[in-house]
């Protein structure tokens, strides 16, 4: 398996990434000796015509950890997750999933690997209830008729496992749910398909305080289940509440990749806006390599 310290891995953020943070007091940060990346990209490059949306991106996502993907508008966050979700296929580069090189040619391949994506628009049908949404496209049938009972049982179990306890009935229409609950349904739908990695695009955008707290709890639950979570967010407060690692995209390049402890709000903003790590942060200079 591709340990970050493996000499065969090309030099770069991977060898200076989370592994170097072994000495930090934060117990959540994993060390080189027990880290196994679930997903690793090597030199991912994606062009749209003459525009290079992503160039030479080396991203690392570990199981049971929350990786926050930061970057200004147009930095390439959406393009990167679409590459991971199989919607785009990068022109160059390699992806290694669970130790094996993979080519994610389509959404079906991604979900087959266990990579589930929760898009910002959530892709839910407001006119269907929670169970119907969770099983959309994967309905259980019994002699060609829908097996509502089994679906309802499974849906309820998944929601309970995710500690989603605020919905009054899993037979209520998704259109009647709050923003946080809709997010929870979308995540539950993803997790129910044996997800090993969940990508969430702006999960807390447009949510109120209480709803945001609920979604952050949900992310923590996923992490405690050993699922790798990759979160895109503009809200640094939320990022600092749940993330274990932070990866910053700047103009299509992965500028910084480091444990969350290496950042504070100010240095994160600095990294997002300049693509460089804040030189004033001493700890960072020892643990993080910034691509310039």
């Amino acid at each position: 398996m591709n340990l970050p310290a493996d000499p065969s891995v090309e030099a770069g953020p991977s060898s200076a990434g989370p592994a170097s943070a072994a000495g930090r007091s934060d117990g959540r940060v994993t060390t080189a000796s027990n880290t196994k990346w679930l997903l690793e990209t090597k030199g991912i490059t994606k062009r749209f015509g003459a525009v290079e949306a992503l160039s030479d991106v080396n991203l690392h996502v570990a199981p049971g950890e929350v990786t926050a993907l930061l970057g200004d508008n147009g930095a390439g966050k959406s393009t990167l997750i679409k590459c991971l979700a199989g919607i785009h296929e990068p022109e160059e580069g390699q992806m290694i999933f669970d130790g094996h090189p993979v080519r994610i040619r389509g959404p079906k391949v991604a979900t087959g690997l266990g990579i589930e994506t929760v898009y910002q628009d959530l892709a839910l049908c407001d006119n269907l209830d929670i169970v119907q949404n969770m099983f959309l496209g994967r309905e259980l049938t019994n002699s060609r008729l829908l097996d509502e009972d089994s679906m309802e049982k499974q849906a309820r179990q998944t929601l309970a496992e995710l500690s989603v306890t605020t919905v009054r009935s899993i037979r209520q229409l998704v259109g009647s749910l709050s923003g946080g609950q809709r997010q929870a349904v979308a995540v539950a739908k993803a997790v129910m398909q044996n997800a090993r990695m969940v990508i969430m695009d702006e999960p807390t955008a447009a949510l109120g305080v209480a709803q945001t707290a609920m979604v952050l709890d949900l992310i923590r639950t996923l992490r405690s289940r050993g699922i790798a979570v990759l979160v895109i967010s503009h809200n640094l407060n939320d990022v600092f509440k749940v993330a274990d690692h932070i990866a910053v995209l700047y103009l299509g390049r992965l500028a910084v990749e480091a444990p969350v402890g290496a950042f504070d709000q100010q240095s994160a903003v600095y990294a997002i806006t300049t693509g460089r790590f804040d030189p004033n942060t001493i700890e960072a200079s020892a643990t993080v390599q910034a691509i310039e």
């Binding site: 998944t158 605020t166 709890d217 923590r220 289940r225």
Partner: peptide, 21 residues
Amino acid sequence: MTRFSEPSTEAGSDVSATQPP
């Protein structure tokens, strides 16, 4: 649904408390 081998530990306990009445 056995893929979740360990019970939830840290999250969820205060979910209902965060729900506005």
